[in-house]
Nucleic acid binder design. Structure first.
Lengths: 199, 199
DNA sequence: GCTTTAAATGACTAAATACGTACAATATAA
DNA sequence: TTATATTGTACGTATTTAGTCATTTAAAGC
């Protein structure tokens, strides 16, 4: 997912980041040790500490890449000459793609970290939110979305629904965590009605 | 999955087994500590050690339950008054169901453990194999499967294909580990041809 | 060839985590 | 009331992990 953003980086740093992304997404952050990242990435610990001060710094770097990726994709989609609904479809496909290997563990740590990463996450989250609000407002200016809808409400609703991630029983009633993420996203855009042109 | 087999057990022992099954399947055995099992199962450590000598004994007990479940289901399917192909369909559905939360990690530890669990696994595996061979031979006796096919070859082929679990690159090319498991199983029964009546 | 730089290795300490046991306190049920 | 089951805390030990360092290996440039 982040691959296209780190092409310029040194090989070993790339290997670390790709491995960390994969392992963190699948098992959550706290379950993965630096040593495991190093051994699976085929990188020595020294090399790790050359590029990252510690695990937290790696996580921050990775998160910022993931945010950057999402915002870049959103901007690309916004520029396309297609209907707003088609843009929403692309966004949903993007979310589906990103959720492929996402585990419940990681999502919990990502959205509801209570460590010193919380502040860092919040900052990035606010930035991505404002990008998305601009996206909606632009669409409203072009008459593609009804102007009565406050983008701020959409964001607030999103935040509220995100708290469902903490409802273990609900999450576990889905075959995979990915299915749960899809449900939330579909619901946010289409409510209870079927997603158009989607088998 | 194993729930129906442990109904009679004491409540706390059930909680431990269900939690362990869930966590082991999702994250693999070595990543999960006894303390994590206890806390998520809402059981004290003392109670854990009352029912299980250590983690290995828990794993053995769990594995034997999982084998027992599979063999019990196979026997149930065999008794049904349906065509052989319909039975195969049921077996595939069963495998699909079992693989829902299965992670690559667990499958590796399960099939290729190199600890002292290996011997234990092999014993159970042999038993389940002979059950399956009987299943095929009975079908051959009834003329439901061509008699030219040696069941032993089928088992040997299965074992060989199972080694693909160790091919990380191949496994990772699937969206989820479950999809990979389905591919193997479909292939074993239907080769490269489509699974009948399956969308 | 030689020199300089980057990376890998193995060893090391300190901290954190996990294991397995023990005991007192509490809850439950006969 | 008397067993029985469960919990919480604590503890010593073992294992794992984090982070650092000196040394070896590999590679790149000249």
């Amino acid at each position: 997912m982040i691959q296209e953003l780190i092409k310029e980086l040194p090989l070993k740093k790339k290997q670390i980041l790709e491995t960390a992304e994969d392992l963190f997404l699948r098992f959550g952050i706290k379950r993965i040790s630096i040593e495991e990242i190093c051994s699976t990435a085929k990188v020595s610990k020294m090399t790790f500490y050359k590029y990252f001060k510690n695990k937290n710094e790696l996580v921050k770097y990775l998160w910022s890449l993931m945010f950057e990726y999402g915002m870049k994709k959103l901007e690309e989609i916004e520029k396309l000459d297609i209907t707003f609904q088609e843009k929403i479809e692309l966004i949903l496909k993007l979310k589906e793609e990103s959720a492929k290997k996402l585990s419940h563990e990681f999502a919990l740590e990502y959205f509801f970290s209570n460590t010193d990463l919380k502040e860092f996450f919040n900052q990035m989250y606010k930035r991505s939110i404002s990008t998305f609000i601009t996206f909606i407002k632009n669409a409203q200016a072009k008459g593609e979305v009804r102007t009565g809808m406050k983008p701020e409400f959409f964001i607030a609703a999103t935040n509220k629904l995100m708290e469902l991630v903490k409802d273990n029983e609900l999450v576990n009633s889905y075959d995979s965590y990915k299915d749960f993420v899809l449900e939330i996203n579909n619901f946010l855009f289409y409510g209870i009605f079927p997603r158009p042109n989607h088998e």
